[in-house]
Amino acid sequence: MPTFDSPRLTAFGLLFMRIAAAVLLLLIHGLPKLLNWSTELQHIEDPFGLGATLTLGLAVFAEVLCPILLILGVFARLACLPVLAVLLVALVVVHPDWSLEQGQFAWLLLVLFGGLALTGPGAWTLAGVLARRR
């Protein structure tokens, strides 16, 4: 009788969660910011007074580079931290007036990236593939 508590299923579940969360963040938030840099500079909130360029740069780092690292499974736990920081700033500082419904996508990403920060990337990562080839 097959068991649903196998290491393969856990590895597949973490791979699926890692890639799905990263692709959603990358496509919906990260790439639009990067590809429309000039326009985004006009609209980005600057809650800490760092300046629009630095604030946008930090957001792009968290929403483009970190998801790519997460997809590859490279420095995955560490890559979740900037994403979590950006999400928390958005929810707590920039949009504290949002209802749960208005902020549901940010809350969902917070749960996914928080879970990945706790569990790690799982067994199926680029580092794992390279280590198995040696």
Rank of each mutant, 00 (worst) to 15 (best):
L14P: 10
V92F: 05
V94N: 11
T3R: 10
H95L: 01
Q42V: 15
L9E: 10
V64E: 02
S38F: 06
L27T: 00
E101R: 10
T125V: 09
Q102W: 02
W98H: 09
S99F: 01
C80W: 04
F113K: 05
V74Q: 06
T55R: 11
K33M: 10
L130A: 09
A21I: 03
F16V: 11
A123H: 06
T53R: 12
L88S: 12
L110F: 12
L26V: 01
E63M: 06
G73Y: 02
I68L: 15
A131D: 13
G51Y: 10
A22S: 15
E63D: 13
I28S: 00
L34V: 07
V93R: 09
T119G: 11
W107I: 15
G115N: 11
S38Q: 13
P32I: 00
L81A: 07
D5F: 08
R8H: 14
L50S: 13
L50I: 08
L26W: 00
A123L: 04
G128I: 08
L91H: 07
P47C: 11
I19N: 01
V60T: 12
T39R: 10
A22C: 03
L31R: 00
A106P: 02
V89L: 01
G120K: 02
C80K: 06
Q42M: 15
V89A: 04
R18Y: 05
S99Q: 03
E40Y: 06
R134Q: 11
A22I: 02
V64Y: 01
A22W: 00
L58A: 12
L81K: 01
L108E: 07
F105D: 01
F61W: 13
L65G: 11
E101Q: 13
L100K: 03
V89K: 02
L35A: 09
V86K: 01
V92S: 08
G120A: 03
A52W: 03
A79R: 01
G13A: 15
L56D: 13
V129R: 12
M1P: 13
V89P: 03
V64K: 02
G51P: 13
L25G: 03
L108D: 08
T125S: 13
L15K: 07
T39A: 14
V60L: 05
F16R: 01
L110H: 06
R18S: 09
D97Q: 14
V64T: 08
I71V: 14
L70S: 11
L72E: 09
S99E: 03
D5E: 12
V129S: 11
W98E: 03
L84Q: 02
P67D: 03
F4Y: 12
F61T: 14
L25F: 07
A90L: 06
V60D: 06
A21H: 01
L88Y: 05
L70F: 02
